[in-house]
Design a protein around this nucleic acid. Structure first.
Length: 209
DNA sequence: TGCCAGGCCCTCTTTAGGGCCTT
């Protein structure tokens, strides 16, 4: 059985915690192999006002957050849900910063490594017209599981994309089912070196390099 | 809607510039 991987997505009030943005919703999909085995999803209340543009984009309103549980409690539960599983997000540079920031607000550490489905998608599907979550989902014919820009729907789509890429690596390149460490290695690999890396993956040599 | 940021990637690059991707 493949080790579990946690696919996460945040909805937020802005682009960066350093600018005062806070999370408004978090969703986590736990995957074993290509199977979704569990889900976590919650709105979270931080006291920060959602700008009108973000309200329109996500459908998450200030009124909805008024009755949401406090962010610290949600993040404690999210951290328990993830446990020690390594994490994946679509544009991980964004979600990992909010994961670290919101856990820090709750007094918790964020030790997990993040793999990024944007970087991986650019490697596995270099000819795709776009690697935004919605467009790569449509391009590959993957199901849309709910309203885009809601955390659970986006996390489900990112999980489906991850599973599709893992299957592609198995079928197209003959590599064993890639674990999180190999995905991290693949996403960092320069495009020109993909062939060599996949050869090493197929023989298992990448595990020891 | 598009700006704000930041990391990554590609090319007309490499002591840089511009586009993508996230809310």
């Amino acid at each position: 059985m493949a080790a579990p991987i946690a696919v996460i997505d945040f909805e937020t009030t802005g682009m960066a915690p350093a600018q005062g943005a806070r999370a408004t919703e978090v969703a986590i999909v736990l995957m074993e192999g290509e199977q979704v085995v569990d889900r976590f999803d919650s709105l979270m209340r931080t006291g920060v006002t959602i700008p009108p543009f973000i309200e329109q984009l996500t459908g998450i309103s200030n009124a909805m957050l008024a009755t949401a549980p406090p962010a610290e409690a949600v993040m404690r539960e999210a951290a328990r849900f993830v446990g020690s599983a390594p994490m994946v997000a679509h544009n991980a540079a964004f979600d990992s910063k909010f994961w670290q920031s919101e856990l820090q607000h709750a007094g918790l550490a964020a030790p997990q490594p993040f793999a990024c489905t944007v970087l991986l998608s650019r490697r596995v599907f270099p000819d795709a017209p776009s690697h935004s979550l919605g467009r790569i989902t449509d391009h590959l014919g993957l199901p849309r599981t709910g309203r885009a820009h809601r955390a659970l729907a986006d996390a489900e789509m990112a999980a489906a994309l991850l599973a599709r890429m893992q299957r592609e690596l198995c079928q197209r390149f003959g590599v064993p089912w890639p674990d999180h460490a190999l995905l991290m290695q693949l996403q960092r690999c320069a495009r020109q070196s993909i062939g060599k890396l996949l050869d090493r993956l197929s023989t298992g040599a990448a595990h020891t390099s």
